[in-house]
């Protein structure tokens, strides 16, 4: 019995908690991709860099606050800096939209053209970020590191397996829930949010109804900048800030959005968790869990790991391919165009 509990704790500690946090980060990232797809109708390859840019501003402002001695006590100072990150990312995407994307909307360019354009934007943002902060790995999480320490948990429960709950993990979930609730309230209850959905649903009819497309596009960019900054900051707090990582996140984020159904916000959230849980479960070494569950005194030879963590991209990719083959519109019906 105790062994089963221990196995459960190990599984929670190494799979459920990290995957939930990662899933929330992916979900918020995928929401940004899916909103751009729904409103501007292209896959934005620069989304990873937008996340990196927003996070970079958060990181810099956090540093500034720390040097002034401002802090949030047990919570990371980065939370205070978050609004500034969102402002920075908003300014960046609005500037990009004005100078780059607007032209292609006007000439009604094919969506694939916009994808290539977004690749150029990605290149430039990449260069700008590196020019500002370089390529170093930076940690900017401060405050209390743990909510529950593994050692305390062991003492508390008397189990041999510890359960650690980091502040950033809980924070990720809380912020993610708040963000998603706010987003859905905005999309479903406000006039502006509804007009965005209307535009995404049927552009011509939205125009006929007097919805101003440029305003919808602008609001979308603002929302996307906020989502990207939140996702990037949560990821950076949970792990660390490395500019190149955000480009690598592009694949799992796209996979989440597509698996859920491109253009569908609910789908993006579901997709994020599907991808995160598959990735973490498949790359987790189950040795500990199996040892607890197996007969007394027996332990497996190997790590009991389905796939090495180096292949976590392969997991997103495999799920993506399976969905593309069997349900091309995604779990929640996305756009078929």
């Amino acid at each position: 019995m105790v062994d089963i509990l221990n196995a459960l704790v190990a599984f929670t500690n190494f799979v459920i908690i990290p995957a939930s946090a990662y899933g929330a980060q992916l979900a918020i990232g995928a929401l940004g991709v899916t909103l751009i797809y729904g409103i501007l109708r292209f896959s934005n390859f620069a989304h990873g860099e937008t996340m990196a840019f927003g996070t970079m501003v958060v990181l810099l402002v956090t540093g500034l606050f720390q040097s002034w001695g401002i802090s949030l006590g047990p919570l990371p100072t980065a939370l205070l800096a978050l609004p500034f990150g969102i402002l920075g990312a908003s300014a960046l995407v609005l500037f990009t939209d004005r100078t780059v994307y607007k032209f292609y909307r006007r000439v009604k360019a094919a969506p694939v053209m916009l994808v290539i354009v977004s690749m150029g934007v990605m290149f430039m943002m990449n260069g700008i970020i590196r020019m500002i902060v370089g390529t170093d790995d930076r940690r900017f999480a401060d405050g209390e590191r743990f909510i529950i320490r593994a050692r305390d948990f062991k003492e508390m429960t008397g189990l041999s397996e510890g359960l650690a709950l980091r502040t950033t993990q809980v924070l990720t979930i809380v912020v993610a829930i708040a963000t998603v609730a706010l987003l859905f309230w905005f999309l479903n209850k406000t006039r502006t949010g509804k007009s965005m959905r209307a535009y995404s649903d049927n552009e011509d009819l939205a125009l006929l109804s007097g919805i101003n497309p440029e305003r919808v596009v602008m609001i979308t960019w603002l929302v996307v900048a906020a989502l990207a900054t939140v996702a990037g900051t949560l990821y950076g707090l949970d792990k660390s800030f490395k500019p190149f990582v955000y480009m690598q996140l592009l694949l799992p984020i796209f996979a989440s959005a597509i698996v859920g159904g491109l253009g569908s916000p609910i789908g993006a959230i579901a997709g994020g968790f599907v991808i995160a849980f598959s990735e973490v479960t498949i790359t987790y070494a189950f040795k500990k869990v199996v040892t607890y569950l197996g007969p007394e005194g027996w332990r497996p030879d190997g790590l009991v790991q389905l796939l090495s963590t180096d292949y976590k991209f392969a997991v997103s990719f495999a799920i993506l391919i399976i969905v593309l083959l069997f349900k091309p519109t995604g779990l929640f019906k996305g756009k078929s165009v």
Binding site: F254, S316, F317, I321, P328
Partner: peptide
């Protein structure tokens, strides 16, 4: 696998396979 689907899908499928080939080599 990916041809015949939408153009974005081919892009993302190739992005993924590129990453995987590099991971295998590494």
């Amino acid at each position: 696998t990916a041809l015949g689907l939408r153009s974005d899908y081919l892009a993302i499928a190739t992005l993924g396979i590129g990453e995987i080939i590099i991971a295998v080599l590494k």
